[in-house]
Design a protein around this nucleic acid. Structure first.
Lengths: 390, 390
DNA sequence: TCGGAATTGTTGCGTCGATGCACATATTAC
DNA sequence: GTAATATGTGCATCGACGCAACAATTCCGA
């Protein structure tokens, strides 16, 4: 109730944020490009970049060799001194990443576990991993905070994990635990929402302001939405749960009829007669199959998926739908066919501008998304991050 | 590519916009309240209000009689001198409204037509209506522009009506026609999207930043979404078309299976054995019915609607779903039952924070929404609107 | 090889918006 | 009637960006 007005301080902070955001998203830009993109004057951009450099966020390097007249403009790049810790607890492992500005994943550790971890165990594992990294990748670096990609519903306001069925978590105060035990600012969000964010900023969705991301994994279908260039979170932060939607299905094969009951990795494994398989293996088996039953199951799942995607397209009118995990395999099994099914059930004007694409970022996706969560407030107000080393 | 930076000009404009926005949404606030809400200093708010008054957007009136110590703070209210023209072409009439800041509908004219109008006829009707109003309600007022609520898909970027099936319009350059013929800046959007905006700002959705609005009319079901306090438009502006979605339906009664095929006013009229009826008549007939077949049809439609609403709630996680038209009647026929069906199919955390409510604004809704479209840029930059009279 | 054109960094100054103090003003409480 | 409280008003100050002039660096053509 006391902050909608703006003053010189905020003006400065907003411009610092704009410049740092450009450097972050572009990974490397000349000062002249920043001038053009912001519309600010040369001298102002100079001062802003100098301040960001003094704060340790960017470094000014040698100009790029461009073949144009005029004085070369120095290249501004993210400083390697600031990193975020990205954490992704899953049923079979806890993955930790050290991610710098510009979404550079500088280190990744996968810590396998035999049974799903508790929140407390997750904290301990992360602490041990961080202790091990401190002499190496973390030496002399400022840790801006910890970002956690949770396979479940996270109340984003306070990082309470309301429900993570496959981990067995329920109303777990995850970020509070991390902040108390590790003393680092911690934020958490749903994994698929972070995947959407990562693909939007650094993947196939670069420059696309309205996209839907759907990921198919062993534990179901998760999703995230970018609307008008910003993550769509909803009132509590639970938005994007496409997997639990009930689309119209011609020949229902499950009782509940939710998207993730009808379109599932388990059914694909069964159709391909595989017990367990990693994603590339499953994709090869499915895409190379000549067996009619396999192709029928692929076609059935494509039909159900198409209706769900059309429902999303009618409501959200994205210009891009990004598919990850086995949903990318479903797309690859018949890209034109799936796109046609979607177009048939989508209002023509909305269908016109719609593309379907496989996700691009691979295994770094969730780490980049989780780091983005950490960097967002830092970029929004660079001056607040303390200079004290980690 | 040259505007993300901010400067003193923008700072001033942003603060003017903030203050005018507060006055617009609150209809009447004291300067002290503005000071508290913006966090700006007294003297700054004073200067801003004075400038807005000089520009003719607000007036400072007598302080309200509050029983508190201290010097009374003058009341700031929207000036009646600035109005928007709201237009809503429908199959059987063209409605025009004169709407002031603060969403005050000062005048409304309904111009019945025998057959659906063309875009060109709409322009002519509006011109004639405006000519008639000029000596009266428009005398001495500045017209900020024209906002059109179209029952169809509108490409918001340029106001091209891609498809308005019930009017028979297709790729009609509506706003261009208006601007050429009437010389007033014109904007257009889907009617339900504007309904959502109006309910968010001045209806049941006041203060709710994440809501879904669904309206049931004779021509089908339209919808609009407010996400994070802003209208969700999508890439082209076609978002919110819930009516064309295909939710899972237990006993499908239509071939296509779209929501608006299964949940329709025509089926309710048939069940109530009415040929034609206005909304209150239909509501009375349905809610007072003891006939089992009527109650069965209501229950059937509620079941289908519940699945569609759950799908929306899972994806968008709103804290409020607003139902208008005959959908409000469906809600009224069993509020607890419908809410229960929705909760059953929605993820528990998302269902927890979700309310279902009937729409509040009545027949002014679309006019207010359309006027909002006109006022938005004016509020964002008050200094641009010319002082020249209409 | 050299000079002109083009582009961009650098520096100092001007402009302008918000702030905060001191003071004036208006109301309530006692 | 006086004290306390809250708010409007005028003025000096601070600080951020824009601008103009100059310097630096490159390309290009004679």
């Amino acid at each position: 109730m006391s902050n909608s007005g703006s003053n010189l301080d905020r003006l400065r902070r907003a411009n610092l944020a704009t410049v740092l955001g450009i450097v972050h998203r572009s990974r490397s830009v000349s000062r002249a490009q920043i001038t053009a993109e912001t519309g600010l004057y040369r001298s102002t951009v100079g001062a802003l970049v100098t301040e960001l450099a003094a704060l340790g966020f960017v470094i000014e390097g040698e100009p790029e060799a461009t073949n144009r007249v005029g004085r070369p403009s120095p290249l501004v790049t993210p400083a390697p001194g600031v990193v975020a810790i990205a954490v992704n607890p899953e049923v079979d492992a806890v993955t930790l990443g050290v991610v710098g500005l510009g979404a550079s994943v500088e280190h990744r550790v996968r810590h396998p576990v035999e049974s799903p971890v508790t929140p407390e165990q997750t904290v301990r594992i992360v602490r041990d991993l961080l202790d091990a990294l401190r002499p190496g990748p973390l030496a002399g670096r400022r840790v801006a905070g910890i970002g956690i990609a949770v396979p479940g519903l996270v109340r984003t306001a306070d990082g309470l994990v309301r429900l993570a069925p496959h981990l067995g978590w329920r109303d777990a105060p995850l970020t509070r635990l991390f902040e108390e035990e590790l003393g680092l600012p911690t934020v958490a969000d749903n994994d698929a929402s972070l995947g959407a964010l990562a693909e939007h900023l650094f993947g196939v969705g670069r420059g696309v302001d309205d996209l839907v991301y759907l990921n198919g994994g062993a534990s179901g279908i998760g999703g995230g939405v970018i609307a008008d260039g910003r993550p769509l979170r909803g009132a509590g932060g639970y938005a994007g749960e496409f997997g639990h939607n009930r689309p119209a299905v011609q020949d229902r094969t499950s009782e509940r009829g939710a998207l993730e009951d009808e379109v599932s990795r388990a059914r694909l494994l069964a159709a391909a007669a595989l017990a367990v398989a990693d994603e590339p293996t499953l994709a090869r088996a499915l895409l190379g199959a000549t067996d009619q039953s396999v192709r029928d199951e692929l076609a059935r799942q494509r039909r159900v998926l198409a209706t769900a995607l059309s429902n999303a397209a009618n409501v959200l009118n994205p210009s891009l739908i990004v598919l990850g995990g086995f949903l990318a395999t479903l797309l690859a099994s018949d890209p034109v066919g799936l796109a046609g099914l979607v177009a048939d059930q989508t209002l023509p004007p909305a269908a016109e501008g719609l593309r379907l694409r496989p996700a691009a970022l691979g295994e770094d996706r969730l780490l980049i998304g989780a780091a983005e969560l950490v960097f967002a407030p830092v970029i929004a107000d660079p001056a607040t991050l303390q200079r004290t080393a980690s």
